[in-house]
Amino acid sequence: MGGRDGDKGVLTQGTRLGLVTVLNEAHLADVTSSQASLRQFLLGLPSVDQVGAEARAATLASRSIKTTAKQFAIDLAISMIDLTTLEGQDTPGKVRALCAKAQRPDPSDPSVPRVAAICVYPDLVSTAEAALRGSGVKVASVATGFPSGRTTLEVKQADTRAAVAAGADEVDMVIDRGAFLAGRYAQVFEEISTVKQACGSAHLKVILETGELATYDNVRRASWLAMLAGADFIKTSTGKVSPAATLPVTLIMLEAVRDFLDITGRQVGVKPAGGIRTTKDAIKYLVLVNETAGAAWLSPDWFRIGASSLLNDLLMQRQKMTTGRYAGPDYFTLD
C-alpha cells in the first residue's frame, strides 16, 4: 500500500524497523559522540513523505467528535493548556490574573479542570510561583534568549538557572536555528544538553521553531536531535513566528516521540504552541495524538497545548454543552 501503514502514519513499517536496527547497532552513545556521527545519523533518518503527512493530518482533522466524546475532549484540552503570556507589556498584575484563571478557568463552574501550567518570561516566574503555590498548576518559563535564541551559551545557562532558581518547574528553551540550518548539529546538541544540566530537576521543553526549519525532514531531524540531547518535551514554536504549530508538523513530531520510545524506552512529550485558537483546532490535535503516538500521550504529562485565547473558546463550548445556549465572550475574562 505505497509503503504506508495506516495505523502508524507516514513512516513505513520497513523504515521503522530499519531505524531500530540502525540505532541498536550504533548505540545511542556512539550516535552522539561526534559531529560526524550525529550528522550521519540525522541525515540518515528516513525522509518525510510530505504529501502523505499532509494528507494524513487532513484526514484525521476531518473526524467528527460530538457529545460525550466532545465533552471529554474539551476537559482534557483544558487540562493540557500551558496558559501563556509572552509579551513585552506583561506586568505582575497580568500574570497574577492569569494565575487565578489557571486555577479556576470558569469561576461560575467549579467542575472545570485547572490548566496544566502557566508560561511566562523568566523575570515573572517568581510572581507566578507565588500565585500558584500549592495549586497543582506548574510554572513554566521560557529561557535561553527567547524567542530568537541568539545569545551566548553562558547567557543561556544563566537565563535557565535564574528561571529555575525563581521557582520554574519547567523550562521552555529555544534551539539555535541558525546553527541547526547550517548543519552544526553537535553545537545544538551541546547547547540542549548543557541547558538540560542547568535545569536540574526542572522539566526541559525544547522549542524547535518549526516555522523556521523550512522542511519536514528538518523537523524530524530536530526532533531526534532534541530527544537525543535529553529533552523531556519537544515543542513546535515560540508563537512569535508564522506559521506556528500546524497539524502535519505535530504529526511528524508525534511519530518521532513514538519511535523514540520504541527504541530507547524513554517517553518524551509534545507541545504544539501558537495559532491554536478554537476548540475545533484543539480537538484535531487530540485526535492526532491518539492516532499517532497513542493514548499513552493523552495526558498533561505528555501532551501540552501552548495557548492563551484557546481557553476562552474551550470554556464557551463547554458552557454551550452544559446550558444548551450559545455562550458569548462578554461573560469570560479578557486576557
Binding site: Y326, A327, G328, P329
Partner: peptide, 9 residues
C-alpha cells in the same frame, strides 16, 4: 430559539 438564547446577541 438559538438566536434568542445566544449569549452574544
Amino acid at each position: 430559539p438559538w438566536l434568542a438564547a445566544h449569549m452574544d446577541v
